[in-house]
Amino acid sequence: MKKPQKKKIFYSLILLIFTVIIGVLIIDTYVSSSSSDKIYKETNKIPHKRVGLLLGTSKFLSNHQINLYYKYRIEAAAELFKAGKIEFILISGDNGSKNYNEPKLMKEDLMNKGIPEEKIYLDYAGFRTLDSVLRAKKVFGQNSFTIISQEFHNERAVFLAKSFQINAIAFNAKDVSINDGLKTQLREKLARSKMILDLIFNVEPKYLGKKIVIE
């Protein structure tokens, strides 16, 4: 290959990478700004909703330490319930194998914080945020609920809810320090771009199944 051709390919790749980065950043900013009016940080200011959708995550990190995202989400859900801001908690997480069950562990920890078992419902097929939000509507019959997660995650979840005409608000659990959460924050920017593609191509939840009544 001649030198001018190599240069042309090199500059084309640089331009492509630059374009992708700019596109990811634009989407990231757009998702945040579109969701900001539906997100709450203070318990006394958030409106009452019958159901809180608690988005799952793993309890432990690869080094076997507690996952702070998990810990803070449990605390936020318990806080909302005890303040009377939600009446039921729908836990939506991954139960992709016999040895991995996010909803079950979260339920146990919520009960340890005094949440009655009959007030907790489990969605074992919340493999992605899209699945969790859409299944809350299509399987559990909820078209208005409070999403519970960290702010960066809530922004994406609320954006999804709006896209499916779901009247959702969100409550921010305490966030993790930038040192502990940098990788997660970077992954979130890519997840938002993938979400836009999922919406464009009308991607559906992996599983739906029979309807479950929350009562």
Rank of each mutant, 00 (worst) to 15 (best):
R135V: 06
G84C: 09
F60Y: 15
D94R: 06
N44L: 10
I148T: 04
K162R: 14
N112R: 11
I86A: 02
R135H: 07
K38A: 11
I74K: 02
N143Q: 14
I115S: 11
A170D: 04
N101R: 12
G52P: 10
F127M: 02
G93S: 02
D123H: 03
A161W: 06
V139P: 08
G126V: 10
N44H: 09
R50W: 03
N167A: 12
H153S: 05
K138Y: 13
A78T: 14
D94G: 04
Y69S: 09
A161V: 06
V158H: 04
E118H: 15
E117L: 10
S97E: 13
E87H: 08
R135N: 07
Q150V: 00
S92W: 07
A77F: 08
F145E: 09
S62F: 12
K59L: 01
L55E: 07
G52V: 07
K49P: 06
L110N: 03
V133I: 15
L134P: 00
M106Y: 11
G96P: 01
I91T: 07
T57K: 04
R50K: 15
V139C: 04
K85E: 03
S97Y: 12
A125E: 11
A161C: 07
S97F: 04
H48M: 02
N154P: 12
G56P: 05
T57I: 10
K138M: 13
L122N: 02
E102Y: 09
K174A: 07
